[in-house]
Amino acid sequence: MEAVEVAGLRIAYERVGHGPPLVLFHGVGEDSRIWRPQLGGLSDVFTVFAWDAPGCGQSDDPAQDLSAEDLGDLTAGFLRAAVPAKPHLLGLSWGSMVALELYRRYPGIPATLVLVSAYAGWAGSLPPQEVERRYAQVLAEVDQPPEKFIEEWLPTLFTDKADPAVVAQVATIMAGVRPAGMRALLSASGRADYRPVLPTITIPTLLLYGADDQRSPLNVAHELHRQIPGSRLAVIPDVGHLAPMEAPDAFNTEVRTFLHGIAG
Rank of each mutant, 00 (worst) to 15 (best):
H18G: 10
R178H: 10
S32L: 12
D65E: 15
R33Q: 15
A120M: 07
S93N: 07
T205V: 00
P20R: 15
A111K: 15
I173T: 05
W122C: 08
F49E: 00
Y209W: 15
L79H: 05
R15P: 06
F258G: 02
G91D: 01
D52K: 13
V98T: 05
L92C: 05
A7H: 13
H225A: 11
R105S: 09
W153Y: 10
A68D: 08
E132A: 11
L89A: 10
P84I: 10
D212R: 11
R10E: 13
N219V: 04
L79S: 07
S59R: 00
R133C: 00
A243M: 00
M174C: 12
G230A: 09
P87A: 05
G72P: 04
A123K: 06
E147A: 10
W94P: 05
I173P: 04
L115C: 07
H88G: 07
E254I: 03
T172A: 15
L66N: 01
S93G: 12
V197H: 00
W51P: 04
R36V: 15
D193S: 06
T156D: 10
S189R: 06
V177Y: 08
L42T: 08
I262L: 09
P179C: 06
L24Y: 04
K148P: 00
A7I: 02
A184Q: 00
M245F: 13
Q38H: 11
L185F: 02
V45I: 07
V177D: 11
L139K: 15
L71I: 07
V114T: 15
L186F: 02
G240R: 06
H26G: 12
V6G: 10
A234S: 13
L186N: 03
I173F: 06
E5R: 14
F251W: 12
S117C: 14
V23K: 00
R80E: 14
V4Q: 12
I236K: 05
D213W: 03
A180M: 01
F258H: 08
E246F: 01
G124R: 01
Q129K: 14
E254N: 04
V166I: 13
N219Y: 10
A175K: 15
G41N: 06
T200V: 01
G210S: 03
L186E: 05
A50I: 13
E5M: 12
D31K: 07
D70R: 13
E101D: 14
A250S: 14
T159R: 07
G230M: 05
A76C: 12
G176K: 13
S59Y: 02
V131E: 04
L102P: 07
E141C: 15
S96P: 03
G261F: 03
S67W: 08
T156K: 14
Y119I: 06
L242W: 15
R80T: 13
L198P: 05
L92K: 02
V6F: 09
M97N: 02
A53P: 08
D160C: 11
V131D: 05
H260Q: 15
A7F: 08
A63R: 15
G57L: 02
V4R: 13
T75K: 07
D163G: 09
V177K: 11
